[in-house]
Nucleic acid binder design. Sequence first.
DNA 1: GGTAGACCTGGACGC
DNA 2: GCGTCCAGGTCTACC
Length: 297
Amino acid sequence: MQFTIPARPPFNFRSVVSSHGWNQLQPFVYDETAGTLSYILRLSTGQVIDLVTTAADSGLKVNSPRLSVKEKAEVTNILTWMFALDSDFSEFYQAIQDEPALANVEKLARGRVLRSPTLFEDVIRTILTTNTLWAATRRMVANLVQQFGEPLPSDPTRRAFPTALSLAAAGEGRLRAETRLGYRAPYIVDLAQRVASGEFDLEALKTSCLPTLELRRELLKIQGIGPYASANLLMILGRSDYLPIDSWALKVVSHEWHADQPVTPAQVQADMDKWGRWQGLVFWFWDWSYNHKDSAG
DNA sequence: GGTAGACCTGGACGC
DNA sequence: GCGTCCAGGTCTACC
């Protein structure tokens, strides 16, 4: 079946899908030529389905297997969250209107950051991006999905993201030895066990009214989540008060404003402070000259 | 509060 | 083919 979910304008499908590297991580499959993003979703009933999304005139077009009214409502809620379809960026656009390096942001409707259906999944993805190369992140996520995700009935080579219960049951030894998560394995097991048991209501943070500082404190309590990872997750949660400063951030800021001289996280912070509560979005969507220095010669 | 070293994997490199 | 070095954030112990 096919249906459309409206988005608050302006909305640009490709801007959301390519907002960061999540589209390269299983169970997402992004076909840039066709302009489609596929995601293997496990519904609350346990049914595993393939959702194929693409751009519609005023939102998101969804192709899915036949769904009941209840299932369609669940899928609509999940995709609305994943694509931040109801988010309003008008204040952000107002704040950056005089900045040339952000000139295309409103025109391309940038601001939305692609999310996973659950914060649990986004926390695990984020932990697997820390202290490693992107190729290793892709491999670790693929291993997790292939080893512990539930298969799509029509194509068992494709699987949903593992549930907290399945990762809690997997155990640290297996996640180290077979999934190759290294020292991150105990972090994943600890989180999965606390979420699966109900001890930690991680999903409640998605709709939390806590001030960003307190929300950050909650995220930092999770093993494996430090300053970079918490800022990344805050961005996913729609809070852009903090900067996800990783080694790439140090490089681009060094090139942009410090003549390629080494910079510290404190210097990056000082450079972005003037953007206040928008600094995360400004940093994320800034047109870094470092990124196209090769083409610039 | 700040700092140093350990954690772990896989790619790059030299032999 | 083997050994060594390196990149990448967070944690823990220590000051």
